[in-house]
């Protein structure tokens, strides 16, 4: 679905934000793009809908070189939700905000109405449809931003730092929505440094540092690799950090969920009990 072929991107200021990035993301995958600030995550995301075009190398979306398409054309396939939802809003009501994008992309009025209804319902914003977007809470704004993008049903949804500034209840909701979008067959790419969030999503993780991809694998593999994470200034999720402290006693340090950790601890403790009994 998405293919980066040895992509390098240099900003006009001379900063090299991507440096020889090659990666493939398949249709229907759920991917977390991780790395500290300045690792190149946002630059990566902006290549997905052609806001940035590679200085060197190629980016393919659905088999097409992004250089040959406009941002508007690519946006129909890849919807990007940026970190600051406030950067979008300018209309008096939230339903108009959703309709605005659909009209931009050339949908007929009939379709526009249907899609607005659907997107607001899916994001649980129906009751506020006549409200000003400026009066929404932080979590609601984030959901509205997602509703705006979701409305035209892009195959790929990319979200830049969706969890920043969100409280635990909002994060929980966001996690469920991301999972559901993915279950519906959409490719979902989120950039984040929130390890606990990714540990709960259990997705594929692409780890970036200084414009390069330094690791690519399952969350449970990457988020338990202490050395790798600290080289990228990322903290281990607490479950893994706790278990790795006990690795010398025979506990499994490669777990990231509470349930697995409990199961493993109980199992190991039983073994100790057994040896004593024998």
């Amino acid at each position: 679905m998405i293919r980066f072929d040895n992509v390098t991107y240099v900003y006009p200021t001379g900063v090299k934000a991507l440096n020889g990035v090659s990666v493939e993301i398949g249709r229907g995958e759920l991917v977390a793009l991780m790395g500290e600030n300045g690792a190149g995550k946002t630059t990566f995301i902006k290549h997905l809908n052609g806001l940035l075009k590679p200085t060197n190398g190629k980016v393919y979306v659905d088999g097409k070189d992004t250089r040959t398409l406009s941002v508007a054309q690519l946006s129909r396939v890849v919807g990007i939700v940026f970190q600051n939802a406030d950067d979008m809003f300018f209309l008096p009501t939230i339903e108009e905000e959703v309709a605005f994008s659909l009209r931009n992309l050339g949908f007929s009025e009939e379709v526009v109405q249907k899609r607005v209804d659907w997107a607001l319902k899916f994001m649980e914003l129906e009751e506020y449809r006549k409200r000003s977007p400026f009066l929404l809470s932080g979590g609601e704004k984030k959901r509205l931003a997602l509703a705006i993008i979701l409305a035209w049903n892009p195959q790929v949804i990319a979200m830049d730092e969706p969890t920043v500034g969100q409280d635990s209840a909002q994060k929980e909701k966001l996690k469920e929505m991301i999972k559901q979008l993915n279950l519906q067959g959409r490719t979902v790419i989120i950039s984040t440094h929130d390890v606990e969030f990714v540990a709960e999503l259990r997705s594929r993780v692409i780890l970036m540092s200084k414009g390069r991809i330094v690791a690519d694998g399952r969350a449970e593999t990457i988020l338990t690799d202490g050395e790798l994470l600290s080289s990228c200034s990322i903290l281990m999720p607490q479950v893994a950090a706790t278990m790795s402290r006990l690795a010398d006693l025979g506990f499994n340090a490669k777990v990231i969920s509470v349930d697995e950790a409990v199961r493993n601890i109980v199992e190991v403790l039983r073994r100790f009990e057994h040896t004593r009994g024998a």
Partner: peptide, 29 residues
């Protein structure tokens, strides 16, 4: 500008009047 382009606003298309209208989604936020 990036956020608005990502929702289909084409800043560099259309006549002067249309372009001026496209400034609204930029200037209000």
């Amino acid at each position: 500008m990036d956020a608005q382009r990502a929702r289909g606003v084409e800043l560099d298309k259309g006549g002067p009047l249309q372009r001026a209208k496209k400034l609204v989604p930029i200037l209000v936020p």
